[in-house]
Amino acid sequence: MRVLLRTPPLLIPTMLLAEFLPWYFLHVPKVIIRTYVGYVRAFAKIFSILFLLRTLISPWKSIADRYPENMLQLLQVFKVWTLNCTARGVGLVIRTATILVALIIQVLLLAVFVTVLCIWVAFPLLALLGIEYVFFSFQTT
């Protein structure tokens, strides 16, 4: 308490007005947005969407065979073609699924971010409404 007694009487209220309100309504929302952007970038990097798109139809795990030099060996050509197509198909399916998962995560991130930001900014108002609701309830009872 000695600290409080030594403190000039108007310092804390002044500090609250001068520092707290800009901090609450400007600084913290900025921090929330920055954090959100950080996570968006992190998940974009983890799922490498750009790389997945670039290699969307590349053979899965480089499983591919070479076509025979004599293209008249139709059966052999067909076998190689089937294998290569299958490898590319598998690659396409897995990469598409991964891209979808990445997009879902981004949507979830956005939802969490918007919720946190709204709650933070609107909380003083919500608290006032809540208190008013409680008093209103008292009056009716």
């Binding site: 950080g38 996570y39 992190a42 990097k45 290699t55």
Partner: peptide
């Protein structure tokens, strides 16, 4: 839990899929 650390811990998905066995 920091975004940068998260990338370091999890790594990236998909880069290894173009490499063969």
């Amino acid at each position: 839990w920091h975004p940068e650390r998260l990338v370091e811990r999890i790594g990236t998905i998909g880069h290894g899929w173009v490499q063969g066995y």
